[in-house]
Amino acid sequence: MTNDNPIRTRFVFAPPVDDATAWNLSLDRFAEALEQGFPGAWTKHEGPLGPRPSDTLSFEVEIAESVWIEGLTTTPFDGMGSVMVENASASEAAVFAAWLRDSFAPSPELVHFSSEFAMNRGDESVWRIPAAGGTEAIAEELQRHIDTAGQL
C-alpha cells in the first residue's frame, strides 16, 4: 500500500473487551471533551440506533486545517460504548486516536481498535493503540492493521 492512495475505512475505537466500562463513557462528557479538544467541533445527540438500541452522538471534527472527519459514538449500556471515525485514512484516524488516548481515555493503555476494512476480510482481531508516541506511531500501527488485513 502506498501513501499516494491510502485505504479509507471506518475505524472503531473502544476500551479493552475484558474491561468494557474502563472509559466510563457518557455521551455528554464525550461531547464536551470533543468540543474542548477540537475547536469548532460539531456534535449532535441522535436517537437510539442499531440492532440493540444504543444512545448515539454524531460528530464532526477538524483534525488539520480544512480536514474534517465524521464519527459516531454509541453507548449500548451505561458507561460502555465505542467511538467510530468514518471514511478515514490511517494518518487521519491517528490524529483522532491520539486525542482519544491522551485527552479522553483514563489511561493510555485503554484504547483498542479495529476497522471495517479488516472485519470485511474476516479479521476479527482487536489491536491496541500504542500507549506512548505521537500521531506517527499511531498511524504506523493503524496502517500495519490495514496491511495485515489486506493480506488475508
Rank of each mutant, 00 (worst) to 15 (best):
V61F: 10
S54T: 12
H145S: 07
V95Y: 06
E46S: 11
N5Y: 10
V61M: 09
A41E: 13
S103G: 12
T148C: 04
I69S: 00
N5K: 10
S91F: 10
I138M: 11
L57V: 07
G122V: 03
S26H: 12
R121L: 11
E124D: 14
S66A: 15
A90W: 01
F59W: 08
A118C: 09
L27H: 07
A105E: 03
F11P: 00
G40W: 14
R101C: 09
L25R: 01
A94M: 07
H45P: 05
M80A: 14
F96E: 00
F113T: 03
E70I: 01
F11L: 05
D18Q: 15
E32D: 13
E136R: 13
E60A: 13
R8W: 01
T21Y: 06
F30W: 04
P51Y: 01
R52I: 11
S114G: 13
P51H: 01
L34K: 03
A98V: 12
F59R: 08
D102Q: 04
P39E: 15
Q151C: 06
S107F: 05
W42N: 09
M80K: 06
T9H: 03
R121Y: 02
T74D: 07
A20R: 12
D4H: 12
L100S: 01
A88Y: 00
T135S: 14
D4T: 13
I63A: 04
A105T: 01
A98L: 07
G133K: 08
